[in-house]
């Protein structure tokens, strides 16, 4: 683009004329950007700073108390059964959720890529839960996965009766801190609902990715004698890797801050098997009036998301510049 500009003879002539305009135009540009920028600085960065300050304070009752207590609230949380359980649940939920969303999304994208009839019908069907609220999803799946109703009525014929989100078993558990560390079975139920809702996202991403791969690439591979399976495995999948990274990052930030789905579907659950930091933060802050503890949970949530997001943002911005 720059080269074109310099080679444009008209441009040189106009340069002096433009300069005058530049200043007013630049003022306008500033006026366009400034409101948004100031709002973001205050509402995002300023507020995060304030939350950080609250998390170091003693405000754990109805009346605000901003006396400085250092890391007391954080130390309390890391020794707290409920918060330890939250960290475990979030970890396993995130792995389960991302893994399933990718496998489902990719498989469906490849199946839909086979030039089948009714492709758009299927595609729209798989996308539509994305338009729903997590609250609606939670309400419906709570009923579907209720151990005494829902899908268990079907499963009765097969003689299995999973306890879904009421199951307090921790798979492959071992004692770690206050809690038993392992896969909380109840989280699988939440995962199913979340996967139902979010598969559409990875599917859309992969469909766009597959469309972006030119037919010539496949043809070339075919000429080289690759089987269809090899083409997918060796040619197409590697090309989809950046998309997979995006899907992982986006899904990770959704799962790390998840609140509404769990709040409306299961709540914290028996023995906190379905509790997550988002729910704990909400309940402890707005129900128990432990504002400083709530702020500390929020800051930990922010940091866990930032670990993923910041490098990703920086890299994707750099890639573009």
């Amino acid at each position: 683009m720059e080269l074109v500009k310099q080679n444009n003879p008209q441009k040189v002539v106009r340069a002096t004329k433009r300069k005058k305009k530049l200043s007013t135009d630049h003022m306008m540009a500033l006026a366009f950007l400034l409101p948004s920028f100031i709002l973001i600085v205050i509402f995002v960065y300023g507020f995060i700073g304030w939350t950080g300050y609250v998390s170091l304070s003693n405000w754990n009752s109805l009346v605000p108390d901003f006396s400085f207590v250092g890391l007391k609230n954080y130390l309390y949380l890391f020794g707290d059964f409920r918060f330890q359980a939250d960290l475990r649940n979030t970890l396993f939920f995130t792995i389960l959720f991302i893994g399933l969303v990718i496998i489902f999304g990719l498989t469906l994208a490849i199946l839909l890529d086979q030039k089948i009839k009714g492709e758009s019908v299927f595609r729209n069907l798989f996308f539509f839960p994305m338009a729903l609220s997590f609250v609606v999803t939670g309400v419906v799946w709570q009923w579907l996965l209720n151990p005494s109703t829902g899908v268990n009525l079907f499963l009765k014929t097969f003689g299995i009766q999973p306890k879904w989100y009421t199951d307090t078993t921790i798979l492959a558990g071992f004692k770690w801190g206050q809690i038993e560390f392992g896969l909380p079975v109840a989280m699988i139920a939440v995962g199913i609902a979340a996967v139902w809702q979010m598969t559409g996202f990875s599917l859309a991403m992969y469909i766009a990715g597959l469309r972006g791969i030119p037919d010539e690439t496949r043809e070339a591979a075919r000429m080289d004698g690759a089987t269809e399976l090899q083409i997918y495995w060796k040619v197409i999948l590697p090309q989809l890797r950046p998309i997979t990274v995006s899907v992982i990052i986006i899904m990770a930030h959704i799962s790390l801050k998840i609140f509404d789905l769990i709040y409306s579907m299961t709540g914290p659950g028996a023995n906190f098997v379905t509790d997550v930091p988002g729910v704990y933060m909400f309940e402890t802050t707005f129900r128990g009036n432990y504002y400083a503890n709530g702020a500390a949970i929020a800051i930990i949530m922010l940091l866990s998301v930032a670990i993923f997001m910041v490098p990703y943002l920086i890299r994707s911005r750099k890639g573009e510049a």
Binding site: S61, F81, A270, N271, F272, G288, N289, Y290
Partner: peptide, 18 residues
């Protein structure tokens, strides 16, 4: 006080399972 009740509820929730 509410703060105590919140913590007791939490302890009871764990106790019911464990």
């Amino acid at each position: 006080p509410e703060g105590f009740v919140t913590k007791v509820n939490q302890a009871v929730n764990i106790f019911v399972t464990q």
